[in-house]
Write a protein that binds this DNA or RNA. Structure first.
Length: 202
DNA sequence: CGGCCGATTATCT
DNA sequence: GATAATCGGCCGG
């Protein structure tokens, strides 16, 4: 399990460090896990794409706290988004987990998300991932560094830097520049991820 | 394949 | 009252 100090750095540094790590969720006593393959960084009140741009509110309070906690919010009237709080107390920052390569508990994940059970690439979106893992607002504010918790992150396989694409964040609507074009999205191509896992893990 | 659109409600102005 | 860190379905090329 990754310790608190791992998370204590600005989101644009934490986001690439989380690529390749293993996200673990314990549901009904069962382990659901996958390799994180896509992340985005949201850093500080000055970042106009970050929810914390409006300052401390009820929703954003978790982002202002200690790193290594889950910031989970509801959007588009139907989707939960999973973020990991970064940086230090008083500096609001978080990393959005956008995609993962499933490793453990596939059966329960497909049960949680029946409609996509057949697709070859079925956890390539932040809301797909939370549905498969059974992550909702009930877990907002969870400590990822607690042994008895139901969600945490573990060390994972090394991902070669040349397989990680860096682009602008997506879905930001009319966020002004320079934030709209900030290269704060890291992603491993899904076919590359498959090959890598086959060779590294089997 | 790429672009457009409706769904559906918490949160903030 | 407007908007949203999305998704899936439907359209045309």
């Amino acid at each position: 399990m990754l310790e608190r100090s791992f998370y204590q750095r600005p989101a644009p540094q934490l986001a690439p460090a989380l690529i390749g790590k293993i996200l673990v969720r314990v549901q009904a006593g069962q382990r659901l896990a996958g390799i994180i393959t896509e992340t985005e960084a949201y850093q500080g009140q000055e970042d106009l794409a970050c929810h914390a741009r409006a300052g401390l509110t009820k929703r954003t309070s978790v982002m202002f706290g200690e790193p290594g906690y889950a910031y989970i919010y509801f959007t588009y009237g139907m989707h939960w988004m999973l973020n990991i709080v970064a940086d230090h107390i008083g500096s609001p920052a978080a990393v959005l987990i956008r995609a993962m390569y499933p490793l453990e508990g596939l059966e329960l994940m497909q049960q949680n998300r029946p409609n996509l059970a057949q697709s070859p690439n079925w956890l390539n979106g932040p809301a797909k991932l939370t549905q498969a893992l059974g992550v909702t607002g009930a877990l907002n504010g969870s400590d990822l560094c607690q042994e008895q918790g139901t969600i945490h992150i573990e060390e994972g396989p090394h991902i070669p830097a040349n397989l990680v694409k860096i682009t602008a964040r997506i879905g930001l609507g009319k966020t002004p520049e320079p934030w709209l074009s900030m290269p704060w999205r890291w992603q491993v191509d899904s076919s590359d991820a498959s090959k890598l896992i086959e060779t590294e893990i089997g």
